[in-house]
Simulated assay, not measured.
Amino acid sequence: MTSESTLLYDLIGGDARVRELVDRFYDLMDLEPEFTELRALHPTTLDGSRDKLYWFLSGWSGGPDLYIERFGHPRLRARHLPYPIGVSVRDQWMQCMAFALQDIGVEEGLRDRLITSFYQTADWMRNREG
């Protein structure tokens, strides 16, 4: 029997599509002025950030646990505590991811399901009020 998380990886389209999603997400963050506050929290070059999100999403969605193989448990909240993440940054992250999902052609039902899951995590990452 296939688990729901494995189905997500397959439904997204596997390895190449997860990478495409991450690359589109970071391209949008780097290019669009509406994501300036979010972009400012990242290093000058986004290569490492791209890889880490790709590795994380691979395992999170049911594919290979690439992040865990490299770094161990993700400890997402602890790893993000040094960065001021408030409602505005959360919303920028969510909008950027929603655009990326749409831009790479993720089917609407799956896109809605992913956005709901991403929102729960993004909101949990907040460590500031604003």
Results as ranks from 00 to 15, higher is better:
residue 62 G to R: 01
residue 62 G to A: 01
residue 12 I to R: 10
residue 32 E to D: 15
residue 85 I to S: 08
residue 67 Y to T: 00
residue 33 P to M: 03
residue 67 Y to Q: 00
residue 61 S to Q: 02
residue 110 L to W: 13
residue 78 A to W: 08
residue 125 M to A: 06
residue 24 R to G: 00
residue 27 D to N: 09
residue 29 M to V: 15
residue 68 I to K: 15
residue 43 P to S: 10
residue 17 R to M: 11
residue 67 Y to K: 05
residue 36 T to I: 00
residue 75 R to Y: 03
residue 36 T to H: 11
residue 15 D to A: 11
residue 52 K to G: 01
residue 41 L to M: 07
residue 60 W to Q: 01
residue 9 Y to G: 00
residue 109 G to Q: 11
residue 112 D to H: 14
residue 23 D to H: 09
residue 65 D to K: 12
residue 25 F to T: 01
residue 114 L to S: 07
residue 52 K to V: 01
residue 44 T to R: 14
residue 106 V to S: 10
residue 80 H to R: 04
residue 51 D to F: 08
residue 68 I to W: 15
residue 44 T to A: 12
residue 57 L to E: 03
residue 45 T to I: 06
residue 90 R to V: 03
residue 56 F to M: 04
residue 14 G to H: 08
residue 130 G to D: 15
residue 19 R to N: 10
residue 98 A to G: 12
residue 22 V to F: 09
residue 130 G to M: 10
residue 5 S to A: 11
residue 88 S to G: 07
residue 5 S to C: 05
residue 72 G to A: 02
residue 19 R to I: 07
residue 116 T to M: 11
residue 88 S to D: 13
residue 38 L to D: 05
residue 99 F to L: 13
residue 17 R to D: 07
residue 84 P to W: 00
residue 66 L to C: 04
residue 86 G to V: 05
residue 83 Y to K: 12
residue 7 L to R: 14
residue 12 I to L: 15
residue 66 L to V: 02
residue 77 R to A: 05
residue 74 P to Y: 01
residue 59 G to T: 01
residue 75 R to T: 06
residue 84 P to C: 01
residue 9 Y to A: 00
residue 42 H to S: 03
residue 70 R to G: 01
residue 22 V to R: 05
residue 24 R to A: 07
residue 41 L to P: 03
residue 70 R to N: 09
residue 79 R to W: 02
residue 44 T to S: 12
residue 93 W to F: 11
residue 86 G to M: 08
residue 1 M to F: 13
residue 50 R to D: 02
residue 86 G to P: 00
residue 129 E to S: 12
residue 116 T to I: 09
residue 80 H to D: 04
residue 22 V to S: 03
residue 65 D to M: 10
residue 122 A to E: 06
residue 16 A to G: 02
residue 24 R to F: 02
residue 38 L to P: 00
residue 111 R to H: 15
residue 18 V to I: 11
residue 11 L to N: 13
residue 105 G to R: 08
residue 107 E to G: 06
residue 104 I to V: 15
residue 122 A to P: 04
residue 116 T to S: 10
residue 8 L to Q: 06
residue 36 T to M: 02
residue 130 G to Q: 15
residue 74 P to K: 04
residue 99 F to E: 14
residue 3 S to A: 11
residue 78 A to K: 11
residue 35 F to W: 08
residue 80 H to M: 02
residue 94 M to E: 10
residue 17 R to E: 09
residue 101 L to F: 08
residue 81 L to F: 01
residue 26 Y to D: 03
residue 107 E to W: 08
residue 61 S to V: 02
residue 26 Y to N: 04
residue 117 S to T: 12
residue 42 H to L: 08
